[in-house]
């Protein structure tokens, strides 16, 4: 069986780079969404704190 060397290298390279790129993307998105959610939750807390005295 002939081994298709360029194809092997392509699979190898695109695989390693691909996995890292996807995981880095996920890391950034997770960090971003954590920040956003932190801000949102802080707002909610502030709102509640303001809403309560009115009761």
């Amino acid at each position: 069986m002939e081994t298709d060397c360029p194809k092997v290298l392509e699979v190898f390279g695109s695989g390693i780079i691909g996995v890292f790129l996807v995981m880095i993307l996920l890391q950034l998105l997770t960090q971003l969404s954590t920040r956003v959610i932190d801000v949102v939750e802080k707002w909610n807390k502030d709102d509640e704190a303001q809403a309560e005295p009115k009761k």
Binding site: V11, F12, M23, T30, T34
Partner: peptide, 22 residues
């Protein structure tokens, strides 16, 4: 979620796959 850096470790271990592929 508490430590998103660990996503990179999940990627790191996959590098082993490609060595085996070779």
């Amino acid at each position: 979620i508490a430590n998103p850096k660990t996503l990179l470790l999940g990627a790191g271990a996959q590098a082993g796959l490609y060595v085996t592929f070779f």
